[in-house]
């Protein structure tokens, strides 16, 4: 399992490396993009996932001790925590979708000024306009960030959002696989597979994968959500 996790580390390493390269190039855009995300859901999700890592170690312990009720309980708890995480995540994606924070090639026209200050009509992507709205609604520093940005920079925030969607999307996929494994273990537990207590090792090996999913989130959290500026007044679901 550890060997397999190495490949997972390098898999995510690839996208993290790309993220780093662009963050060096476009610090402002990344800050703005992160500011537009929903920090409340992300924070809740962080704690959910950490708790699920905790419950699965309890499940291992129960299997080791031969406490079958406990084993099932903790497996169910882990599955529930994971599922709630996914529900929140779905809510968050839906929120982003409603706010129009989805990169696309759709264009629209806006009033703006060119370098010499002359008013012009400029073709920009719908995404950039939506981003401007979202940031302005958040007021305070978020609005200040948006005000300082040019349209071209707003366009480039799409790169941040490509990272946001692909990284969290891959994480969600991994979670779904992990939940599948957990359900399978639960069925095995129900069938009494873990009666011989030395078979706790199967859960332990599977738990490595689950912890790894948690580990990925631990890094996604600061890199995606906490790279911007958030204030407590504007928290919402």
């Amino acid at each position: 399992m550890w060997l397999f996790l190495v490949t997972e580390v390098l898999f995510f390493g690839g996208v993290l490396c790309a993220y780093t390269a662009y963050r060096i190039w476009y610090p402002k855009e990344f800050e703005a993009g992160s500011t537009a995300l929903n920090p409340l859901i992300a924070t809740i999700n962080t704690f959910l996932l950490l708790s699920s890592s905790f419950t699965i170690t309890l499940a291992i312990r129960s299997a080791y001790k031969g406490e079958h009720a406990g084993l099932r309980l903790w497996l169910v708890a882990t599955i529930v925590l994971g599922t709630v995480f996914l529900c929140f995540k779905a809510r968050e994606y839906y929120g982003d979708y409603e706010e129009g924070l989805v990169p696309s090639q759709q264009k629209t026209l806006v009033d703006t000024v060119d370098e010499s200050g002359k008013p012009i009509l400029k073709e920009v992507s719908v995404f950039a306009v939506n981003l401007k709205h979202v940031l302005e609604e958040k007021e305070g520093k978020a609005k200040a960030i948006s005000d300082k940005m040019t349209w071209n920079e707003r366009e480039r925030v799409q790169i941040f959002f490509m990272f946001y969607y692909s990284m969290t999307g891959l994480h969600v996929l991994h979670m779904i696989v992990g939940l599948g494994l957990l359900v399978w273990q639960l069925i095995l537990a129900q069938m009494g597979f873990f009666r011989p207590t030395e078979r706790y090792i199967y859960i332990e090996v599977m738990s490595l994968y689950w912890h790894f999913v948690d580990l990925v989130w631990i890094f996604l959290f600061p890199l995606l959500y906490m790279a911007g500026i958030h204030s407590v007044e504007h928290l919402h679901f």
Binding site: F11, F12, G13, V15, P103, M162, S166
Partner: peptide, 20 residues
């Protein structure tokens, strides 16, 4: 795995017409 990631990012870009 790094190739896998590169190809996935490429596929995302091709599907959505926009990408990194």
């Amino acid at each position: 795995p790094v190739l896998a990631m590169a190809v996935s990012l490429l596929a995302t870009e091709r599907i959505f017409g926009i990408g990194i």
